[in-house]
Write a protein that binds this DNA or RNA. Sequence first.
DNA 1: ATTGTGGCCTGCCCGC
DNA 2: TGCGGGCAGGCCACAA
Length: 270
Amino acid sequence: MPEILEVEATRRAVGAHALERPIVGVDAPDAWYLKRGLTPAVITAVLPGRRFVAARRHGKLLLLDTSPDAARADTDAGPTLGLHLGMTGRVLLDGDPTGDPLRYASNRDDRDWYRFSVHFADGGTLVMRDPRRLGAVLLDPDETRLGIDAFDVTTATLRERLGGRRSPVKAALLQQRDIAGLGNLLVDEILWRADLDPHRDASSLTAPEQRRLASAIRTTLRTLGRRGGSHTGDLMESRQPGGRCPRDGAPLRHDTVGGRSTWWCPKHQR
DNA sequence: ATTGTGGCCTGCCCGC
DNA sequence: TGCGGGCAGGCCACAA
């Protein structure tokens, strides 16, 4: 799924419904799904006795802070659980999927796809369901690997992060270490709205173009967020063979840019 | 150091 | 109906 809008929708759901519920158990049947050295033994030992106390998000990374361990009369704050949804991950809360339906993955509820589960004392669960296993569960993830959150981008930060980049502007926008949260669909929509050719070298953008791009990022996140997700862009339904630009009717071009499938209008994106 | 490429993993859809 | 190929909104390690 998951670009920043879907992760934000999940964050809101978790924040509204999964906080302050004592954790009594963890299922981590897929050790491969735990990343950066985390093991099933560690995660199943560390979460029970705690509660989630805050649901945060940095880019596409969902961060769940935990409380001190009640059983040990521990006063130190607990670790932070990091959930990354990858391309096909989805969080289920008490059996219900959060966020919007996946566009490029099955939305079937197959228990074989439950890669990680947290059980609450009240009988409820928080489950990561991921057919392709491209998501990840992390403990105390390193947030310094991520750049500024896409919701906070300004013209100034854009100039600072992209100004010196000698790569296609599309590839630069997808670099999570510079700007965190934008994925393939959002970037195509943003560049389409900003009238910019995705192949343009990021360092070649003029000051007005940088302003346009920053503005398009804000507008796109706000508009698509309201509509219900990354797949609700104006470009979305034309993103297929034979698709035409919704603005001027020109045939869209399809290329690979930054290693990703890219649809753009050669008439108004320059 | 930065940038580009390939790989990871599995499901689904299309054409034969 | 079955099968193979290609594609998919993620990230990471590696090579140049």
